[in-house]
Amino acid sequence: MKLLYTILTTTLFSLAVFANPNTTTQSSPKKFIILGDSLTEGYGVAQSAAFPALLQKKVEQDKLNWKIISSGSSGSTSASGLQRIKWIAKSKPDMVLVLLGSNDGLRGLKPEETEKNLNDTVEWAKQNNIEVSLGQLHVPPNYGKDYEKKFSAVYAKVAAKNKIQLAPFLLDKVAGQKDLNLADGIHPNEKGHQIVADNLYPFVKKLISK
């Protein structure tokens, strides 16, 4: 009887875990790493006020057993993607969201080069069985229509080529808004990061709730 009870309990528990992999009853949460630049690093705001930390709060509110980890590095370009995904792979992430390329755009690098770098990063992740997705980025309008168009198109191309999910533009409703950015006019302030988290969370939630 005791044995039967044990088997039954174990089976039911296993079924429950299978039914909802994100349940809080799991002891060790899965890792969702955001690989990005100064936006991800939360340049100018406390780490606890940057959007990865705010996403983590939302995940906890929804009782999803995931840990959102920020891996942002100010000034980094897409060229650092491959090296850095190899670094974070050591911590065995379950999912990685690549948010690189803003600095490529701001420095006027060739969109073809950015595309190649992002492809290399995504391909390596896939080859190493890391579930990866990509975040859409844009350059400010002052870079000119042609460049803006070519640059923005890179993300859709990489996503399509690698058959991965493309997150919406994280600075939507934030870019260019004086009240939502720091004095440098580029990096979001605390309020801006809150909106960035709101912009991204539906996408993240969908990914981790699969």
Partner: peptide
Amino acid sequence: NLVKAGSTVT
């Protein structure tokens, strides 16, 4: 037409 909403200018 480069300086408009969202442009990064000083």
